[in-house]
């Protein structure tokens, strides 16, 4: 029989609050926060969705109208404004997978596991778009859909690693053992991210080098930097919005597993 991971304290407040005796509920900032989230959560989420939509429209305008056309690459350079922010956010998602995995191994709280899973899914989706948009740019600029360049190859490896993470997780099911194994996998998988980031400096590659080097001066005109930062902001909002949705989905799926186990016990 499958071992269902324990229900975390406070994770399924809505499901368990009615059943919990009054003396077990701890009044304090956590209860206050949960109450505020319950009351204002839907409004905050709607506001986040609206701001994300506005940000995305602004990004399209900035990328296609505001930013100047590149003299060498021509209009196809504008792919950069969606390709680069998505790549950075995929890195962020994979970092969050590793961080949540560490937290899961320390606390054994299922919420960290759900958070890691949600980030892995969004990171894999964003990496898919990075590969597709990069391939379209490559076909236009290099004349080839794909080259076995260090950056491209390590990105493909990164994509495979996180797709395997998701496939293996659904194969393992929602067991404590599966969550533990996935946490170790999530931590080890993150080691590919710095290799992928540094690939353009460590090896001779066709891929353009960093245009906004960490701690360095931007190698772009100010209008392009503004468009890129605006796009990064909008995509970060989109990332937050998606993370909220996928995390909630993970929580609901865990509730289903718990209820199923309860029914089987009876």
């Amino acid at each position: 029989m499958k071992t269902v991971t324990r229900a975390p304290s406070g994770a399924l407040e809505r499901d368990t609050a009615r059943a919990r005796p009054a003396e077990q509920t701890r009044p304090g900032w956590r209860t206050g926060l949960a109450g505020a989230m319950k009351r204002y959560g839907p409004y905050a989420e709607a506001a986040l969705g609206a701001v994300t939509a506005i940000g995305m429209l602004l990004t399209i305008w900035a990328a296609l109208v505001y930013a100047p056309t590149d003299l060498i690459e021509g209009p196809v350079q504008r792919i950069f404004y969606i390709h680069v922010p998505m790549a950075w956010l995929a890195y962020l998602a994979f970092f969050l997978v590793a961080a949540a995995s560490v937290m899961y191994l320390i606390t054994r709280d299922d919420r960290w596991d759900w958070f890691a899973r949600a980030n892995a899914e969004i990171g894999a989706v964003f990496t898919t778009f990075v590969l597709i948009t990069g391939s379209l740019w490559g076909k236009s600029f290099w004349g080839a859909w794909w080259v076995w360049d260090a950056r491209l190859t390590t990105t493909l490896i990164l994509w495979f690693i996180y797709v395997v993470y998701l496939v293996v997780r659904s194969f393992w099911g929602r067991t404590a053992q599966g969550a533990r194994n996935a946490a170790v996998y999530g931590i080890l998988a993150f080691f590919v991210v710095p290799i992928n980031y540094e690939a353009v400096t460590w090896w001779r590659t066709l891929h353009p080098s960093e245009v906004l080097p960490l701690g360095g001066t931007p190698q772009l005109p100010p209008a392009m930097v503004i468009a890129l930062l605006l796009s990064l902001g909008a995509f970060t909002l989109l990332f937050a919005f998606l993370l909220l949705q996928v995390y909630r989905l993970e929580r609901a799926q865990a509730t289903v597993e718990r209820l199923r186990a309860q029914l089987e016990e009876e």
Binding site: F129, L136, W137, L242, Q245, L249
Partner: peptide, 23 residues
């Protein structure tokens, strides 16, 4: 170049909408 630019944005937006719908 314009064709690839349009294709990139179309793939991204259609893909994102499909993903949100799937979620």
């Amino acid at each position: 170049g314009n064709m690839f630019l349009i294709a990139s944005y179309a793939v991204l937006w259609v893909g994102l909408l499909v993903y949100i719908g799937w979620v």
